[in-house]
Amino acid sequence: MVLEGVYKVRSIDEVVELLEKYRENAKIIAGGTDIVIALRNEKITPKVLIDISSIDELKSIKDEGEFIKIGAGVTFTKIVESSLFQKNLWGLYKACRLVGSPQIRNKGTIGGNIANGSPAADSIPPLICLGSTITLASKNGKRKVLLEEYYKDKANYGMKEDELLVSIDFKKPTENRVLSFAKLGLRKALAISRISIATFLELDKKGQVTTIRVASGSLGKYPMRELEVEEFLCGRKLNERTIDEAIKVVQQSMDERLKGRSTLPYKRVAVESMLRESIGDGIKFLDGVRA
């Protein structure tokens, strides 16, 4: 790699100015935990690097009452250490805690996780479940995109070469709703997820599902909602039987989506454990709230 220019900038305005100027020749670097590897392996060969890790505006987590807004430059460690993600948002806490290693969590950012868009990115399924919106900025102003749509329809919603991911925001769930997360890795640290499942759940007094969102990682080209399962479970009571059924529904979706992949036979059975863990943890939390 041969870089011609590097910029350590202090404001979003500076970034968008530089992006406008260098376009496809520029790459944004924050934590560097993905991009430096890509540079090393010559997967990307930008001429210019723009370091956004010193922009204070991107590094804060804001509790805005109804919403929580996370700057794109917030590290996983910061999320893990924040008190905001301890109760019914602990699915996000858990996902961030299971990222790589302490060193990776200290540098890696939630914005980087989103922008890199790996199907195995740990933080994305929980954020999708929360109905998160991301804000992208360019010289021409800002636009907001639903995170889920961002991956689904890259042509229309994906990031343009002159855009910077600025923040992620989502509505704070009410007390009777919970976000949970489960990850399957090959070892206990430094593990890339083989499967991850996030669940956002609300139950009524009888234990019937009133709201559910399920999102998966590593089960497709990008992290995505598992709509068939959601549809199946919505309005039902969660018990052994319905969860067994739900597992079959996920497996059917996977059979279509991952047809012909060598990893399918294993993943379709292992997904059971992840879905059980994720939904089970959610139920356990809500039972605690009601008790």
Partner: peptide, 11 residues
Amino acid sequence: FSRYLIPTAMD
């Protein structure tokens, strides 16, 4: 080392 997995302290 991201593909050839040796045990970590947690394993």
